[in-house]
Amino acid sequence: MAGERHSLPGVIGGDIMRHGKLALLLLAAVLVSAVLVVTTVHKTRLLTAQREQLMLEKNALDIEWRNLILEENALGDHSRVERIATEKLHMQHVDPSQEHIVVEP
């Protein structure tokens, strides 16, 4: 047996299979958990970026909603003035095509 030659990878593999099964199992568990941590962090960053984008869109829609409310109120005020002019002051709309110019002498 003194003249036998063994390859180093074969000797290491044999030792691991005989004496290091627990260490090999722990190494595999560490590698799997490391990959899962990296994947989770990546997904979390993507979701955080998506949330930020949605918050920006929400703020833009809130601003647009406020502007529409202001516009509605402004148009409502105009119709209110028109209604008061018609009901209380008995004013009427004038059709420009039927308007006659009266010149006083």
Rank of each mutant, 00 (worst) to 15 (best):
residue 1 M to N: 03
residue 2 A to C: 00
residue 3 G to D: 11
residue 3 G to P: 01
residue 4 E to Q: 10
residue 9 P to D: 03
residue 10 G to L: 04
residue 11 V to A: 06
residue 11 V to F: 03
residue 12 I to F: 11
residue 12 I to Y: 04
residue 14 G to R: 12
residue 15 D to F: 14
residue 15 D to R: 14
residue 16 I to Y: 06
residue 19 H to T: 06
residue 20 G to R: 03
residue 20 G to A: 07
residue 20 G to N: 06
residue 21 K to Q: 15
residue 21 K to N: 13
residue 22 L to I: 15
residue 24 L to K: 14
residue 26 L to Y: 04
residue 27 L to F: 06
residue 27 L to M: 05
residue 28 A to N: 10
residue 28 A to M: 12
residue 31 L to W: 02
residue 34 A to S: 06
residue 35 V to G: 03
residue 36 L to R: 03
residue 38 V to W: 07
residue 38 V to G: 03
residue 39 T to M: 13
residue 39 T to D: 13
residue 42 H to S: 14
residue 42 H to W: 13
residue 43 K to M: 03
residue 43 K to A: 10
residue 44 T to W: 11
residue 44 T to F: 05
residue 44 T to C: 06
residue 45 R to A: 12
residue 47 L to F: 07
residue 47 L to R: 15
residue 48 T to G: 05
residue 48 T to H: 13
residue 50 Q to E: 14
residue 51 R to L: 12
residue 52 E to P: 00
residue 52 E to F: 01
residue 52 E to N: 10
residue 56 L to S: 10
residue 57 E to G: 04
residue 57 E to M: 11
residue 59 N to H: 10
residue 60 A to M: 08
residue 60 A to C: 05
residue 61 L to K: 13
residue 63 I to E: 13
residue 63 I to K: 13
residue 65 W to Y: 15
residue 66 R to N: 11
residue 66 R to P: 00
residue 67 N to C: 01
residue 68 L to K: 12
residue 69 I to V: 15
residue 70 L to D: 09
residue 70 L to W: 08
residue 70 L to I: 02
residue 71 E to A: 11
residue 72 E to G: 01
residue 74 A to P: 01
residue 74 A to G: 01
residue 75 L to P: 01
residue 75 L to H: 09
residue 79 S to I: 14
residue 79 S to V: 12
residue 82 E to M: 07
residue 83 R to G: 00
residue 86 T to H: 10
residue 88 K to H: 12
residue 89 L to T: 00
residue 89 L to C: 09
residue 89 L to R: 08
residue 90 H to Q: 13
residue 91 M to R: 09
residue 93 H to V: 01
residue 96 P to V: 06
residue 99 E to N: 02
residue 99 E to K: 08
residue 100 H to D: 13
residue 100 H to N: 15
residue 104 E to W: 08
residue 105 P to D: 14
